[in-house]
Computed example of a mutant assay.
Amino acid sequence: MDSTSNGVAGELPTNGNGVTVDKGVDFANYFCTYGFLYHQKEMLCDKVRMDAYYNAIFENKEHFHGKAVLDVGTGSGILAIWSAQAGARKVYAVEATKMTEHARELVKANNFQDVIEVIEGSMEDVILPEKVDIIISEWMGYFLLRESMFDSVIFARDRWLKPGGMMYPSHARMWMAPMRSGLGDQKMDDYEVAMNDWHNFVDETKTYYGVDMSVLTKPFDAEQKKYYLQTSLWNNLHPQQVIGTPAIVKEIDCLTASVHDIIDVRSNFSSSITERTRLCGFAGWFDVHFRGNKDNPARREVELTTAPSLDNGTHWGQQVFLLHPAVRVDEGDDMIVSFSMNRSKENHRLMEVELGCEMRQLSGKQLPRFARKFYIE
């Protein structure tokens, strides 16, 4: 699952913004989490996730039969085992953490030790004995691109996939839509409580200890605003909380996309408000598709979606970008939204998002444009 490389052989790994990445620090901050079974279990209990990959493999077994498969970021090894059960000749299951020890035990317990080779190491460092017919990976992070793991999948594809090979999944899309939620009011209350507590702290420190801490009020305020008001939230929204037409902000062909295509994501999209309510922010989610390729399409195309759902939420949920204050909107109001997402300079696995919005009411009145910056952490 390592994505510390920009996919160019011979260069030092960077975070996509030209800043060199310390692989040891990156491992400590990111990979260590995936080395624990409790975290693997959370993903394995995600029925939407599991059903999509299971159906994609077993409804298209002819893609796997007799083929060589590379599983990037194998984790517990379940995708590798399913590939073998579908008839793969050989499966290379690459994993950067000590989860490889559990994966090997699981492979052996299911009698696939002669088919599946579990390899511990970052994808950028691993050498395979052959090129493969299929690359399978569950690389998606919050709002698709958080964690930057797709970098490693791209690297694996460019180095190890045969001409005419397949990517599982083959395509991905990022979506956004206007939404309503009481979370905005709650977060504003939390911010105000934190600032009131700070002001009391400043007063008491000066009264009892003779030190004026007020010079630190401005940076403390900036910290709290970022934490409470500018950091996107994880949520599993109900479909009725979406108050406007969803729009695609990014489409990715996993067979052709480059790292450059995903470092800086920019989009302008429109949405029409569907009811009279409060616009409390925007929700972001993704879907991926298993289509095979144009020369060998899937017999049954499978979709995995993380859209707001009545009863089938996922561990990815949606990313919620809250507006403070909320904006009154009416049915038929139109909005044009500008969206940009870049990697954080401090941590290439985290994201910074800028949203700008122009609103035209049904009456024809143009509302003042607003813009906000957010952090996906």
Rank of each mutant, 00 (worst) to 15 (best):
L144R: 03
V91C: 01
S83P: 07
K250C: 13
G292M: 03
F282I: 06
Q241R: 10
D311E: 04
E95H: 10
G244K: 07
H260D: 15
I243C: 12
I57L: 12
W234V: 02
R372Y: 06
G164W: 08
Y375W: 14
F58G: 04
G313E: 01
M149Y: 01
A80I: 04
D51T: 10
I243Y: 08
M341N: 02
F201N: 11
S181C: 07
A177N: 04
E331M: 09
Y53N: 03
D203F: 14
N200A: 15
E352K: 13
D330L: 12
F201T: 14
Q318L: 03
M167Y: 11
R291A: 14
P219V: 06
D212K: 07
L37K: 10
F282Y: 14
D261C: 10
A326V: 01
Q186E: 09
E303D: 08
E101R: 09
N110V: 05
F150K: 08
D197S: 12
V126P: 10
G244F: 11
S271Y: 06
E124R: 13
C357H: 03
K61A: 15
R278P: 02
G73R: 05
Y34I: 00
R157Q: 08
R343V: 01
I154F: 12
N6R: 06
C45W: 09
P325T: 02
V19G: 06
G87R: 00
Q240F: 12
T4G: 15
I376L: 15
N29Y: 04
G364T: 05
W160Y: 15
E101I: 09
N110P: 04
D221W: 08
T306M: 00
D212F: 10
F58D: 05
Q361M: 14
D295T: 07
G87M: 00
A326T: 03
D197I: 09
D71N: 15
P178C: 10
